[in-house]
């Protein structure tokens, strides 16, 4: 296959994965949230179970007027949603759905994924700053403060994983989790990292990624009851839809990273290598949706933290815990 064809296929696969994943999670949010609240949720769109609701929403957004507020910084305002979406799509490039199904397996995959996903916050800050709206500005600055506080525990949690796996490649980390943890007679049992020492790391990663995604209980940059809609207050039409899509695609990508780092990625204990080749994507996606469900569950249960409480949670609890986690992991790695 020529390079151009391969590139096209890869671009389409990455986009398809992102869009498909995000649409499913959006639908799940509508439906799961509804049932948690004694509601039915979307019902009519598409004829059955309201499955077409996310598509209908997207279509509706496209028809709306694309409004740029008076006095807004025009270029920055228009660019911001693309930056946010870019940062989210970027992560999907390095996600391995099976040993061979990966768009680009970088040696520094974990590093790249965390770096590019931080780009979203830059977009959020741009949106908040350029909207010429005080609520947007406060929202944007909250997002920036949140980034600084939560990028650290997120990265530190992954450092421990990298130490245990001995690699920064995402495929490498998943493969390392296929190594037998212990054996019963002839039978080698491979366990994901969440069961072999990274349980604290997993908890830190999930909490930090909730903050990174600005989802309840850490949705202060949006904080509907305080800042109307935070940094998206002024956005309408397709640009709003991009923020919306980026939020849910971000949920998929963060769940996917957590799956790869802690839940064994496409591996399932007891499955042979050939079975993994075939079933890998199914296993991987199932785990991603399981984690996304956890995020949805939290959103419909908890109230919102305050910005200063979030900061103190990050600096006083998560970062020390993450550092301790690294020290313990490193000690075990050297001693055993």
């Amino acid at each position: 296959m020529s390079f151009a064809v391969l590139l096209t296929v890869k671009v389409l696969a990455v986009l398809g994965l992102m869009l498909g994943g995000a649409l499913v999670v959006i639908y799940a949010e509508l439906k799961v949230g509804a049932h948690m609240q004694n509601r039915i949720g979307p019902y009519f769109a598409g004829g059955r179970f309201g499955w077409a609701q996310p598509f209908a929403d997207a279509l509706k957004f496209m028809q709306k007027e694309d409004l740029v507020p008076d006095g807004a910084d025009d270029r920055v305002y228009k660019l911001a949603p693309y930056v946010v979406l870019m940062g989210t799509i970027g992560v999907f490039v390095v996600l391995p759905l099976s040993p061979r199904f990966v768009a680009r397996d970088l040696d520094l995959g974990a590093f790249y994924a965390l770096a590019i996903s931080s780009l979203t916050t830059l977009g959020v800050l741009m949106a908040g700053w350029s909207s010429n709206n005080k609520y947007s500005l406060i929202g944007g600055l909250r997002a920036a403060a949140q980034l600084i506080a939560y990028e650290l525990p997120l990265v530190l949690a992954v450092v421990a994983v990298a130490i245990q796996a001995g690699t920064l490649s995402i495929s490498g980390i998943i493969e390392a989790q296929a190594a037998p943890a212990f054996s019963i007679g002839e039978l080698n049992v491979a366990l994901p990292y969440i069961l072999t020492g990274q349980i604290i790391g997993f908890a830190i990663f999930v909490v930090a990624s909730l903050a990174e995604l600005s989802r309840i209980p850490f949705d202060m940059p949006i904080a509907e009851s305080e800042l109307t809609m935070g940094f998206v207050t002024e956005y309408s039409s397709i640009r709003f839809a991009m923020f919306f899509l980026a939020e849910y695609a971000g949920m998929v990508s963060m769940s996917a990273l957590a799956t790869a780092f802690y839940l064994g990625g496409y591996q399932l204990p007891g499955l042979s290598a050939t079975a993994v080749e075939v079933l890998g994507p199914v296993i991987f996606i199932s785990k991603v949706f399981l984690l996304s469900f956890l995020f949805i569950w939290l959103r419909w249960t908890l109230p919102r933290f305050r910005e200063d409480q979030l900061q103190s949670l990050a600096w006083r609890w998560l970062i020390p815990a993450a550092l301790l986690n690294i020290a313990i992991t490193a000690t075990f790695k050297v001693v055993f």
Binding site: M36, Q37, N38, P217, A223, S225, W300, L302, P303, R304
Partner: peptide, 13 residues
């Protein structure tokens, strides 16, 4: 009140 603190589910109950 919980809605203002960000929890939307108590509202429905």
């Amino acid at each position: 009140f919980p809605l203002e603190l960000g929890a939307s589910t108590p509202l429905m109950y």
